[in-house]
Computed example of a mutant assay.
Amino acid sequence: MTADLARAGSDPRPGFPLRPELRGIEPYGAPQLDVPVLLNVNENPYPPSDRVVADIAGAVAEAARGLNRYPDRDFDALRADLATYLLRESGVTLRPEQIWAANGSNEVMLHLLQAFGGPGRTALSFAPTYSMYPEYARDTATAWIAGRRAADFTLDPDEVVAEIERHVPSVILLASPNNPTGTALRPASIAGVLAAADGVPGGCVVVVDEAYGEFRRAGTPSALELLADHPNLAVSRTMSKAFGLAGARVGYLAAAPALIDALRVVRLPYHLSAVTQAVARAALAHSTELMAQVGSLRAERDVTVTWLRDRGLTVPDTDANFVLFGMFDDRHAIWQGLLDRGVLIRETGPEGWLRVSIGTPAEMAAFKDALVEVAGL
């Protein structure tokens, strides 16, 4: 935050009418620090290969020849490529008109709240969960309600129904796998939410955020399988994590065509640049190669879970590329101790917990060595 904005957030000058609910608010973002081992923002630690980089560069160069023209604002070719990928990844057949894309899944979520939230409407989720959800609600003047997850971070069916009946939300946001816990929702849990949402007067959109969906364990289905029977369901994905393209900023969503059409109304004109479309399509052409590291990251995750549990720490089951672990009386001291040893993880989630992203074997070895020193394991 700049000094001027910080001052404006706490004490706006005359003529600077900052919205009251934004005063004193810090911008969202995990620490970006220059340390040897970066395991705090759930990135894929493996960069694209030289061959992939060359093809992306070629696609961008070709797109650059037409940068004097606006991009395809409906990005039909990219939507078709994403549908092809999802068929291969999840076995679900989708038409291009069932796909939407934007500048990361963050913008996808913002579009959803712009279309279905707003003043006088409520968005509901269940904490602990992704810390950006209440910010999407705030930015769209949507009321925000966070129910509670069970002790094991799953959803309690009775709690879900009670919260939906109590707050009558127009949007329900569910992360699966959940961030920061890594918990995947069982199909029955999602079905229960959808059934309760069907009873909301005026309608309710259920969003299942599968940003980490490719990392789910064998036998864990995708919510994409439920789309055909639920026109109020939207399933969000991203190319930032499994594809290793966090810097490209491409997120996407699958839903019924009528729901997609509502998002087209609120999106800014030409919101997906020609360069972004070119990068995404070139990467999708190499999806098999880019996904090759997903299996090794899953395996490294499972080894890390076992290692932490063997040392007496509590670790919930995780279907993501990160692990939540605890409990610590002073988690900040543990976080700082790791940072002092060149390892950056995330201080997030309920009090007492920490989260580590899964890195390369060398990075995970550095994390374990540092944690043993700091925590005395």
Results as ranks from 00 to 15, higher is better:
E210H: 02
E210R: 05
E210Y: 01
A211T: 06
A211I: 05
Y212R: 02
Y212K: 05
G213D: 06
E214Y: 11
F215Y: 13
F215W: 06
R217G: 11
R217Q: 14
G219I: 00
T220G: 00
P221H: 13
S222V: 10
A223M: 01
L224M: 07
L224G: 00
L227S: 04
L227F: 03
P231S: 11
P231H: 07
L233T: 01
A234F: 09
S236L: 08
R237N: 03
R237Q: 03
R237F: 11
T238R: 05
T238Q: 06
M239C: 11
S240G: 10
S240F: 08
K241S: 10
A242D: 00
A242K: 04
A242Y: 00
A242Q: 07
F243N: 03
G244F: 03
G244T: 08
L245T: 10
A246I: 14
A246M: 14
A248M: 08
R249S: 13
R249Q: 13
V250N: 00
Y252V: 10
L253W: 01
L253V: 04
A254N: 04
P257A: 08
A258P: 06
A258W: 06
A258K: 10
L259N: 02
I260Y: 07
D261H: 15
A262P: 04
L263E: 03
V265W: 14
V265Y: 09
V266K: 03
V266R: 09
R267Y: 13
R267H: 06
R267K: 14
L268V: 12
L268D: 15
L268S: 15
P269Q: 11
H271P: 00
S273I: 05
A274R: 15
V275S: 09
T276A: 15
T276L: 14
Q277F: 06
A278I: 12
A278R: 05
A278H: 03
V279K: 05
V279F: 08
A280V: 02
A282R: 09
A283W: 07
L284F: 04
L284S: 10
H286Q: 15
H286F: 06
T288F: 14
L290N: 00
L290T: 04
L290A: 04
L290R: 08
M291T: 03
M291N: 09
A292K: 14
Q293N: 13
Q293E: 13
V294N: 07
V294D: 02
G295N: 10
R298K: 15
A299R: 14
D302N: 07
V303K: 12
T304E: 02
V305E: 05
W307I: 03
W307A: 05
L308Y: 01
L308F: 01
D310N: 11
D310A: 09
R311E: 03
L313M: 13
L313P: 06
L313E: 08
